[in-house]
Design a protein around this nucleic acid. Structure first.
Lengths: 325, 325
DNA sequence: ATGAAAGCGCTAACAT
DNA sequence: ATGTTAGCGCTTTCAT
């Protein structure tokens, strides 16, 4: 930068201003500086800027894994929104591990991110404390919460689970099953599913849990296990579409006709859900919008447009009834 | 840090050493410093460290979009590998746009990333020049190249396309079609596909191109357009599984029996490819491994283990023959 | 509209 | 094994 200043015959601050607040510099001066920048191929060191200004223009985001299309879509939406506003995205994967989440939060705070995005609303007290102490905007997404760290953008996983149960029961299912990953949002869906089933007197749900991240094979194996234990099963809720697709595959292998023999519902509405045979009934989550909304909320906050926006943003969900249930 | 030093009764450097090279500090001193760090809840400012040492421990990665599961998987593998080695991942999406790629490269260099990962081997001269000038390790992935910027980790897209053509021809297809996204790697696959077809005298390939990122619907619509123009089409190559799944969907709607009426092959082997009906013949790319390999190569380089490793790493591909072709 | 001075919080290089 | 000094490349604040 000193070089650019010398080349343009101005002080270093002026170069700095041309970069971060061009309109505060006289057009002639600005042109000279810009020419010098171009001539020297100068790329400002943003870390030095961060150090001096204590604003990094980096947002940190944590997801369990990118291998699940729904989280990848959320990050896609987030990344586009942030990028358009001049923010960079630092990404971490927790692998559904609390200790890893805490480690990453530390690392990101060490980098002085301007804001953090977390997946889910269950976090260790360490994470909550560190984030609070950092004093930066935090968005938790993919669920709702009564005690958000700061802001929440999501939907009610229990309500979604309940909606699926009501649908299966309405179409006449009597013996319900559930296949889900061992993680919090999946448990919430199960809880809602159970409560709604109980309301009409069905208190027995056959449950099969798998280690996240869940695979198509997990879904197939789990359904076979479920049917082995409970041959009369006629209604199945899978906590995500990947598992549901696997369950459909198991049905084809075993000639269990869907939805007659057994009705199956998934969760999240992957693009392939509509293309499966039979087409998958599922709960649509607008994963990408979730990320976009998170991003624009954060950008507003960071711009200081502190409009007293609510702490909880419920984006809802939608039961998409196709052929499988 | 000054606070920690005072609290522990040592100089600031000592605190610095406890953090970055603990073994160079006497156990007693170290314990005192660690206690002080814990007491004050001190989180070192990594940007200051970057500025002073000119090592950021950040790797920048650029993909066209995360909404394609194959790229998301590559980033997943990359992220895990880098994270284990103490590196953070700065992520950007180019949206298949060269200008956006260049903008992001600038932004990442400005952040003084220690290394860069790019998708594909076609980049503007500006990008090449900037990266060269930055003097950092660069890995281009998802293709091979004769003139890599630095290192390449991928496979031959043309060879993969040729393999698909040979397979379709071997099973008796006579009138070939291709559906692909308008982007370079897809074109490479088409090129290989065409060349292999020509070798046995078939020089006519009906082509339908779509704007990336490609969707299931794109695949369905494209096949219908293709068949409208060329009713005798009996062999189809889709440049990715998403498009192929859409094509299968169109076949079901129109009662075109697969593979008898028309054989269909996809690309990348998404988990759902095996679950589709009929099961999709495709080319398996180990997307996740591709990211892991990229990460470990980079970590080696950054550690200075400059072992004269080759510049081009061909991870290959595998034709997976299922039911659809 | 432009500049001078000071300092952000670390690490490198050289002592001791 | 620990400390001293200098400086990384910016932005801030206050002048002019």
């Amino acid at each position: 930068m000193t070089d650019v200043a010398r080349e343009a015959g101005v002080a270093r601050v002026t170069v700095s201003r041309v970069i971060s607040a061009p309109e505060s510099v006289a057009p002639v001066t600005r042109a000279a500086v810009e020419a010098a920048i171009a001539r020297l191929g100068f790329v400002p060191n943003l870390n030095a800027g961060t150090l001096a200004s204590s604003r990094s223009r980096i947002v940190g985001a944590l997801v369990p894994t990118l291998s699940n299309a729904w989280f990848a879509d959320t990050i896609d939406g987030l990344s586009v929104t942030l990028s358009a506003a001049g923010y960079q995205l630092l990404l971490g994967q927790t692998r559904y591990d609390t200790r890893e989440e805490e480690r990453l939060v530390d690392a990101f705070i060490g980098r002085r991110v301007d804001a953090m995005v977390l997946t889910g609303t269950q976090h260790s007290s360490g994470v909550r404390a560190k984030l609070q102490r950092a004093g930066i905007p935090v968005v938790e997404c993919w669920d709702l919460s009564d005690s958000p760290i700061d802001t929440v953008v999501g939907f009610s996983n229990t309500a979604a689970g309940a909606a699926v149960a009501r649908h299966l029961l309405a179409r006449g299912c009597q013996r319900l099953g559930f296949i889900g990953a061992q993680e919090h949002r999946s448990s919430q869906r199960l809880q809602g599913f159970r409560e709604a089933a109980k309301e009409i007197g069905i208190s027995n749900v056959a449950v099969q849990l798998v280690q996240p991240p869940s695979s198509v094979d997990d879904g197939a194996r789990s359904l076979e296990a479920l049917i082995a234990a409970q041959p009369a099963l006629d209604g199945l809720f899978c906590s995500n579409d990947t598992l549901a697709l696997g369950a459909l595959m198991a049905c084809r292998h075993n000639k269990w006709v869907v939805p007659q023999r057994i009705a199956i519902a998934g969760f999240s509405d992957l693009p392939v859900a509509a293309a499966s045979v039979p087409a998958l009934t599922t709960v649509r989550i607008e994963s990408r919008e979730l990320g976009e909304r998170t991003g624009s909320l954060l950008v507003q906050r960071l711009r200081g447009e502190t409009e007293n926006s609510p702490r909880v943003h419920d984006l809802g969900f939608k039961l998409v009834v196709r052929e499988s249930a």
